[in-house]
C-alpha cells in the first residue's frame, strides 16, 4: 500500500512495450506473456495487470484463468484416478495425470508380488502431495515424503480456479489467516485449485465454502480481504452464530 498501484484487466492480444525504467514480473511471466521482440510482450490470457510506480515502474501480470501447470515444489491436492502394480495415477487438475510411486508412499521399497497397493490408496482417495519432478515431456512425479503430506481421511474439498489460489492465500497470508480466524476452519490450500476444509461444524463449513466462492468470483477486485471478512461476519449473524457488534 506504500505506492499507488493501478489495476487493469488485460486481454489476449494486448501489448506491453518495456523501456529501461520498467520491469515485468508476476505469475503470468511464464504463461501469460509471449515475447514478440526484444522489448515487446503480448498478453496471451485474460489477466490482471498491476502497475506500481516507484523510481522504477513495475508491472505485474497475473492470469485470471487457465489450467494448472505443475511446478516442482508445488503442494497439490490430488484424487487417485487409477492404480497400476506399483504406482498410482493422480488427477491434479492439470492437463497431465501425475504419478505417485508406492515406494515413495510407504517410504521403503514396494514389492507388488507380496503387497497389495490398493490397501494404501485406492481410486477416489484424496492425497496432499508435492510435485517432485516435472519437465512437460513426462508425467509429473509426486512425493508425499514431507510434513503434512499424505492421504486425507476427512474434510471437505472445494474446487476453485487455480489461477485464483493466490488470492485465497493473500499478501503475506493475510486472506487465509483471516479466513481461519473468522470461520474456525482449518484450510489446506493446493495450488492446483483445490482447498481442503476441516471445520468445527456444518454451518461454519458452509460459510467457508461461500467465502471461497466469493473470493474466486471477485479475485480481480481491490479491498477483497476486508469485504470477505464483512461477508463472513454477516453470514454468521444471519445464521445466529454471533450477534452483530459494530
Amino acid at each position: 500500500m506504500s505506492s499507488s498501484v493501478q489495476r487493469t484487466i488485460r486481454l489476449p492480444g494486448d501489448q506491453i512495450v518495456l523501456d529501461k525504467n520498467m520491469s515485468i514480473e508476476g505469475a503470468g511471466v511464464g504463461t501469460s506473456l509471449y515475447r514478440l521482440n526484444e522489448n515487446t510482450y503480448v498478453v496471451t490470457t485474460v489477466s490482471l495487470q498491476d502497475v506500481e510506480e516507484n523510481e522504477k515502474k513495475k508491472i505485474r501480470i497475473i492470469p485470471l484463468k487457465g489450467r494448472y501447470m505443475p511446478k516442482e515444489g508445488d503442494i497439490v491436492i490430488g484424487i487417485v484416478y487409477d492404480v497400476t502394480l506399483s504406482s498410482w495415477l493422480i488427477d491434479i487438475k492439470s492437463p497431465y495425470l501425475a504419478v505417485l510411486n508406492a515406494s515413495d508412499y510407504i517410504g521403503k521399497p514396494f514389492n507388488p508380488a507380496t503387497d497389495n497397493i490398493r490397501k494404501y490408496l485406492d481410486i477416489g482417495d484424496v492425497v496432499i502431495a508435492k510435485v517432485a519432478q516435472f519437465d512437460r515431456t513426462r508425467q509429473p512425479l509426486l512425493t508425499v515424503q514431507d510434513k503434512g503430506l499424505g492421504k486425507v481421511i476427512s474434510g471437505s474439498l472445494v474446487e476453485i480456479e487455480p489461477s485464483k489460489i493466490g488470492r485465497v492465500i493473500g499478501k503475506k497470508r493475510s486472506m487465509i489467516s483471516m479466513l481461519m480466524e473468522q470461520t474456525k476452519c482449518d484450510f489446506v490450500v493446493g495450488v492446483n485449485g483445490r482447498v481442503l476444509l476441516r471445520c468445527p461444524d456444518a454451518e461454519l463449513e458452509y460459510i467457508a465454502i461461500l467465502a471461497l466462492k466469493k473470493i474466486e468470483a471477485e479475485a480481480h477486485t481491490a479491498g477483497l480481504t476486508e469485504r470477505i471478512k464483512e461477508f463472513i461476519i454477516n453470514e454468521k449473524v444471519k445464521r445466529g452464530l454471533i450477534k452483530y457488534e459494530s
Binding site: I79, Y81, G124, V152, L157
Partner: peptide, 11 residues
C-alpha cells in the same frame, strides 16, 4: 465416475 471419497461421504 471418479468422485473423491471424502466428497462421496459428505454427499
Amino acid at each position: 465416475p471418479i468422485i473423491p471419497k471424502i466428497k462421496m461421504n459428505a454427499i
